[in-house]
Design a protein around this nucleic acid. Structure first.
Lengths: 148, 148
DNA sequence: ACGCTTTTGAGAATCGTTCTCGTTACCCGA
DNA sequence: TCGGGTAACGAGAACGATTCTCAAAAGCGT
């Protein structure tokens, strides 16, 4: 079922890219497929390393380009994982999403979701003199392992 | 009154640094004073530029060092302002704090605070297998000026 | 004032990300 | 089906923010 969701996202993303007028391209498709296989945020460099080994190797620039386009179309979300490194993860087209708690010591990332948090965020967004399109929420601290 | 709060924070921060065993140092003190004068997040490079002009010029390395130490002691919070640049702002010892909405086009930053958001965050934090010490919330979108 | 340590500043090094540019691959129309 | 125009690509250079290195210059307890 998880696999199902993943391939659904890949199809959705590729369709959205086509609708946006992008041509089909091997590198971009590879990035979409790689993202589809990750359930939580990955860094661009991790993706790069992963894709560099492919049959026709994918270049770093293509990875970043694809990620930027995907972000632009609202297909992936970028979050700050740690000190100047971005993590990327696919956005469920239903709008259903989660946030993260990140350990300041080991970098471990734990996803969570909370309805009342979303409600509070939506409400605040409505009162701002801003056209808010997305939000970042990150809890920081120490994971159970690093806490002692 | 705002000035009052600022100098109070500076005193508080300097005392905390002393308690932590740090010696008095001109550069670090300058960073604390500069932070005290900003009501919202500043980037390290902005601080650097600001402090380079001082009587005894403060070096970039010292600015970053001081910020790291202050963050470590829970005296300043670091937030991702945009693409790989961090913003820093003082943390009120009473725990009272705000979050930010950031324009993706012009970078304009608008602070806000919301009680029910804080409540939801605190509640979620309690359910995580994490010792959560702080949280980042950033609303992203376009400001009223860039929106049209 | 002395001596041991911490702090400091200038510049080099690092790391993630973005840009450049010559080449390759797609897609539309003839 | 066969171009031709244009988007996509990969390699490496460039860039900006941050961190590291190291010798010189203060702190602070004695």
């Amino acid at each position: 079922m998880s696999t199902q969701t993943q391939s659904e996202w890949a199809e959705h993303a590729l369709a959205a890219l086509a609708d946006a007028g992008y041509r089909r391209g091997g590198a971009r498709t590879a990035v979409v497929e790689a993202l589809a296989e990750h359930d939580c945020a990955v860094t661009a460099l991790d993706l790069d390393e992963e894709l560099r080994r492919r049959k026709p190797a994918v270049g770093r620039a293509s990875v970043y380009r694809a990620l930027e386009q995907l972000e632009q179309l609202g297909l992936v979300q970028r979050i700050e994982v740690c000190r100047g490194t971005a993590g990327f993860e696919r956005i469920d087209p239903t709008g259903h999403h989660h946030h993260h708690a990140i350990c300041r010591d080991c970098g471990k990332m734990v996803p969570f979701e909370d309805q009342s948090l979303e409600k509070a965020l939506a409400q605040v967004a409505g009162t701002m003199p801003f056209d808010v399109t997305e939000h970042d929420v990150v809890l920081r601290g120490r994971c159970e392992h690093c806490a002692r």
